[in-house]
Amino acid sequence: MEVVIAPAGELARLAADAVQGLLTARPGVVLGLATGSSPLAVYDELARRHAEEGLSFARARAFMLDEYVGLAADHPQRYRNVIDKEFAARVDLAPGAVRGPDGLAEDLPAACAAYEADIAQAGGVDLQLLGIGTDGHIAFNEPGSSLASRTRIKTLTRQTREDNARFFGGSVEQVPRHCLTQGLATIMSARHLVLLASGRAKAEAVHQLVEGPISAMWPATIMQTHPHATVLVDDAAASRLQLADYYRQTYAGKPDWQGL
């Protein structure tokens, strides 16, 4: 696991560089898209590069991490709509190139199995963008989630619903109680994981992710076993890291050609 500590704007640039490098080498790349606050600056940077530098996503495909269960198709916080607004509609992704779990399906377990099959048929995800919750969840894999889990329905914790209430006018009761989410094993199948976190509120979760024991109580810790995982954090999110100076020294001495 590589840990990079830098200003938030620099972190977004680094993540965008990784995506652009893949697109340049293989235009048909498969991306994993996350919602929430953490990836927004990355989407802004990628949209800028598309508009100003001609970066093309025309042959790329993308899979979303998760989706609320039961939100109307036109609800602004339905994750399919969020991803379209924040990213897909701002670049040249082809119609239908972005897939997500179907939170309105009549048969939710069947929808989850179909989504797993879609990812496999696409050849798997090449680069998965991730954020992390204050309780250590990635996607909607809450504390206690199986480390071997696949796409499934989950009940959201009170903490996660409180954290997400800001997207629902500050009302926890408006936040759905259930979601469909890629499982931890599904996420771990991606070839490169890129997690972004900023702010002191994420400091304990980042500390556990990077330096704590692997545990279902902090689901993101499973990333310690991934062969190509990158953690991009600002100073505030890195404030609990015991080896922060070492991570800074390691990154400062990294060969330019190596990339993330």
Results as ranks from 00 to 15, higher is better:
Glu2Ser: 12
Pro7Asn: 13
Ala8Lys: 14
Glu10Ile: 08
Arg13Trp: 06
Ala15Arg: 01
Ala18Ser: 14
Gly21Ile: 05
Thr24Glu: 15
Gly28Leu: 05
Gly28Pro: 03
Leu31Arg: 04
Ser37Tyr: 08
Leu40Ala: 13
Ala47Glu: 09
Arg48Lys: 14
Arg49Asn: 09
Gly70Lys: 09
Leu71Trp: 09
Asp74Ile: 09
Pro76Lys: 10
Arg78Pro: 05
Ile83Gly: 00
Ile83Leu: 15
Glu86Lys: 11
Phe87His: 03
Ala89Phe: 04
Val91Cys: 12
Pro95Ala: 06
Pro95Trp: 05
Ala97Trp: 07
Gly100Trp: 01
Gly103Tyr: 00
Ala105Asn: 07
Leu108Pro: 02
Glu116Gln: 13
Asp118Cys: 07
Ile119Arg: 00
Gln128Leu: 12
Gly131Ile: 06
Ile132Lys: 08
Gly133Phe: 01
His137Lys: 06
Ala139Ile: 05
Asn141Thr: 07
Leu147Glu: 12
Gln159Glu: 14
Asp163Tyr: 09
Asn164Asp: 14
Ala165Pro: 03
Gly169Pro: 06
Ser171Lys: 12
Glu173Val: 04
Thr186Trp: 00
Val194Gln: 00
Arg200Ser: 15
Lys202Trp: 05
Gln208Arg: 15
Ile222Trp: 02
Met223Trp: 04
Thr225Ile: 09
Ala229Met: 08
Ala229Glu: 09
Arg248Asn: 10
Gln249Val: 06
Ala252Pro: 02
Lys254Ile: 07
Gln258Ile: 14
